[in-house]
Design a protein around this nucleic acid. Sequence first.
DNA 1: ACAGTAGACCTACGGTGTAGATGTCATTGA
DNA 2: TCAATGACATCTACACCGTAGGTCTACTGT
Lengths: 236, 236
Amino acid sequence: MKVEDFKVTPRTTPKNVALTRESTLRAALEIIDEDGVEGLSMRRLGRALGRDPMSLYRHATTKAELLDGVAETVLAELTVDTASGDWEAQLRTVARQFRGLALAHPNVIPLLVTRPLSTPLAMRPLGTLRPLEAILELLIRAGFSEVDALHVYRSFFGFIQGHVLNELQEIVENPEETDDLLRLGLHRLPLREFPRLRALASVLAAYDGAAELERGMDTLFTGLHAQLHPTSPSPA
Amino acid sequence: MKVEDFKVTPRTTPKNVALTRESTLRAALEIIDEDGVEGLSMRRLGRALGRDPMSLYRHATTKAELLDGVAETVLAELTVDTASGDWEAQLRTVARQFRGLALAHPNVIPLLVTRPLSTPLAMRPLGTLRPLEAILELLIRAGFSEVDALHVYRSFFGFIQGHVLNELQEIVENPEETDDLLRLGLHRLPLREFPRLRALASVLAAYDGAAELERGMDTLFTGLHAQLHPTSPSPA
DNA sequence: ACAGTAGACCTACGGTGTAGATGTCATTGA
DNA sequence: TCAATGACATCTACACCGTAGGTCTACTGT
């Protein structure tokens, strides 16, 4: 009893399992993780699923929607404990989660930061709005006014987005090279024009994303505390 | 004497002016401003310039490089006064400039935040590194150590990037609608799941990007001052 | 038993980026 | 002066893209 015996249908392979939105998105995510957003085409996704590319339009009316779906599934991994009385600790946790997602799926980040630019807030996939709602809930329960809660959310979200973009830009060009200047390829920069940058080679090479995130949050929360406080300031 | 009389060359139109890298990038920027990055194709750009699409490869070896060029020209509009003794004031100026660029060319922002993710620092267009070098120079002259200067730069740059992404996401769906909830389309959100978000309709509608940027910078600089200081702390 | 329908498939259209060959000058070197 | 050299523009062609529209099949509810 060989696999071929079941080839009732023409050229496609797995076929036994039904095609769901979830499995489609999972496969799409895999392709993006491997080859980036550019690498994902409907034809290739169809091939990966052993289905005709056109079948995909059963579960996503358009490719853009499919990309939104991928962004959504990734973002949905965030969990916010709205019951926590310590809003700062909770936000710190979310930030670390977010960084984790970014490192696990770096190729999805362009999607995450870019898609909302062309989609009004209310038309975004609900899954992407859920963390927003949860954080608002958390902050308001912690005693912030609505306006301040939104302000904190924006500062926080802008911060982690910025941090992740920063961190993902730190790409080492020649990992095997021992000299920092060469490893980062900085020797290519004209010495006259970029003395500071070149001098920072070793500091750049020693970049520690996790530490930088913590430090940035220290900065952020110091600033936030100095500026506004919830009515019930301390953890429950 | 009609225009047609000059049609020595086949189908293309302007032709008299030579095709330079600069004019090419300017035309590309115009198309992106109008129709977004998706709207830019080599064929369309060629049409806009009255040249064969293939001519473009004389000034950019690939489309990706052309996009980098567009990002570069936009970013090159930033000016940093490295001689200023008041580093905070100078950074605030840069931030406002950056926001200005973002509002003037919103469709370029995806390029700005996305392209560096696939390009090691040392291989980026020099124009995009110049602001970085200048800010490092500014900070070091102000008395920061190299490490701290880099840290400040990263916090700052992450912040403005995050802010701009936040601000550009605030798209109003039905500008003519008077009720905030309807104008933002928030009525589409399930009431049970998104009570906080829906309640914030009027606050969201009153978003003021410039004010938010200033507020965010207050937060940021408060935090930075509390955390580290240059050896020569006050403006010259 | 039959109509309706949901899901998958196929074909085809107008687009894309760009490799490679060809044409057309202007400048140079002998 | 003429030939050669290069720079630049053009054309053709290839493999790929997203997706509109039609068709086939198999199951569902009546």
